[in-house]
Design a protein around this nucleic acid. Structure first.
Lengths: 353, 353
DNA sequence: CTGAAAGCGCTTACAG
DNA sequence: CTGAAAGCGCTTACAG
């Protein structure tokens, strides 16, 4: 049981002593508050540097009466897909870890098929003056103008799930969409022959969200570069009703000999359901996301590969990035790409992110 | 900028007030220290329960003069393989995060080919009375008796990298070795035909560490169950000198037509070097661990798959488990299996754990 | 067995 | 523009 103590005392007290000022003045300089003459400020700053002073975060948060408030803005979990459960879980995990530091998190949910719900949430958030915002920027234009307002107000924004490259913000935590698509294509190489035909299926109720398109681009360009012999075609289904999906898939499979289907979003289970219903066995299936329904089909061997990018961790790290920035004054790196995880029948039991 | 304050005051002060005792007495009960009469102890305990009191960890660590000391005991990084760099990195990361809580970590390294170095380190650790120990239990017997001593002294032990199932301890964080081997086998299915021959190569200077054997078992049993047609044979190489490895591999490849080689530990790069030197192109290669040398051969297409289980995270989580237990009094779950990650040419750039 | 008081390293009114 | 003092929720000698 060694004791603390023999450490050099480098705290506000020592700084104040050396600068020959009161502790409160040191505090003012430390937090860049006004009401300090340039002269004393310079003197104190010099001493801080010299001593390589690091504030004690424990003491700071314990003494501070201020509550830090973050806002989280992500799609609501729909009946159709529970994908967003995962990031939310990570967010809650982070929340419980940092609650002791006097941090509170408000959650706002929008409908990813409805721009206006996104606008409504972002307006509310702007009114409330948060210390930081975690955001899935599903709608490009709206997100951009929202972040612009935040930046003006000095509020840091973190993106998860998909990026908005040219938008100034604290950081992005999520997939490199292009390479995720390219990896999917690479995996297809293990499943099909040299002359096989590949069908990209996009099931989505509204205009393609650009992040799905980016994955498709990675997928296609991989084939163009490494597997020229394969024929890749695309089918758009703008409807998530079972009948419509069945009809479209049937049509596509009848008019082409398809050896593999690739779905760039989480809705690969629709195709698997279709395979099951119509007893289609010899078409390979590759898709995204560790949803219960998807995993069930992976287990049964209907889906061959799922690609997943740690949605829980995205939520967790997103919140922690805000925490690091606001509490510890640590700027995380601009872009944090998640690993591209490959899930098969052989390892899904151990996937947990 | 909302303020704290309107919270119900549930701290030692309030407990002391209600119990009509001094704060110090509440503290004694809270920490199970002796010197409190049964009667007052019962009264205070009841109030603590009633109030659902949770101590403020910030205040506790700030006020406490005691330093918590953890010991870490893992293999040293050898020239031959830098695998253990990764767990160490995770350990250091955790260390820097929790340093502010007054926690210090001492690191002990042993030679994984030398039992006596393991014993030496464990003896030193026992003498020093740590608050917690993180351990790679490479040597089964020695580890068991070491943990027995720790348990006697009330010191929690966390295992990483490989487990010792029947040894009482705080928890295990690492791979499910059997299923890691089985996944390797599953991946081989994508690479070889139905009648192909598979060679398991074990390169190791000393008796097989049991955790490599466990992986091999998973690998073999997968083939026995799902790919009966394939012939699986095994080659032991008890030497890490290049010449010896070349000689043995050559012999094996000459006397059998081998389509795929599987290496259950991190030394798959030796086989890749051999392939490169002798221009062997049509033998597939599957192995473990994200070492620089392995990744280089993955990039070149010499190695087809690497399996990896987040060594950095194992180190990080191992330390954090001790921290959670010793500081927050949170018991983590007994066994925390890591995901089994599949690394290919298509996703290695994004692997970071 | 029990209590009063100082202190951990900060922040925060308040006074000047 | 600056300072003295109280307080955040605990722990720790010390005294009785």
């Amino acid at each position: 049981m060694k004791k603390k103590g023999n450490k050099e005392l480098v705290g506000v007290k020592e700084i104040a002593r050396r600068a020959n000022v009161a502790i409160a003045t040191v505090d003012r300089v430390l937090h860049n508050r006004k009401g300090v003459s340039e002269k004393t400020k310079a003197k104190i700053t010099a001493i801080i540097e010299e001593l390589n002073y690091k504030p004690n975060i424990l003491a700071r948060r314990l003494a501070s009466k201020e509550i830090l408030r973050f806002a989280v803005m992500i799609p609501s979990v729909s009946e159709e897909t529970d994908y967003w459960d995962a990031p939310l879980e990570g967010i809650k995990q982070a929340e419980s870890e940092i609650a002791t530091y006097g941090i509170e998190i408000d959650k706002y949910f929008f409908d990813q098929n409805d721009r206006s719900s996104f606008l409504k949430a972002s307006d509310e958030i702007l009114k409330k003056k948060y210390h930081g915002i975690l955001l899935a920027p599903m709608f490009a234009q709206e997100s951009e103008s929202f972040v612009r307002e935040c930046t003006k107000a000095g509020i840091p924004c973190v993106f998860i799930n998909s990026d908005l490259p040219d938008t100034a913000s604290l950081c992005y935590i999520g997939p490199d969409l292009y390479h995720a698509g390219a990896l999917a294509a690479h995996l297809c190489g293990y499943l099909i022959g040299e002359k096989a035909n590949v069908l990209i299926v996009n099931i989505s109720e509204i205009d393609n969200h650009r992040h799905f398109l980016r994955k498709e681009q990675g997928f296609k360009e991989y084939f163009e570069e490494y597997r020229k012999e394969n024929n890749v075609i695309k089918l758009d289904i703008r409807d998530t009703a079972e009948q419509a999906i069945s009809r479209e898939l049937k049509k596509a499979l009848e008019s082409n000999k398809i050896d593999l289907i690739f779905v760039a979003n989480s809705r690969v289970f629709y195709v698997a359901e279709f395979f099951e219903k119509y007893k289609i066995k010899n078409v390979k299936l590759v898709g995204f996301e560790f949803l219960k329904k998807n995993v069930a089909y992976l287990e049964q061997g209907v889906i061959d590969f799922l690609i997943c990018q740690k949605p829980i961790e995205q939520g967790y790290k997103g919140v922690m990035a805000l925490y690091q920035y606001c509490v510890h004054d640590i700027k995380v790196k601009d872009v944090h790409y998640m690993p591209i995880d490959i899930i098969t029948k052989g390892n899904y039991q151990f996937y947990s992110n």
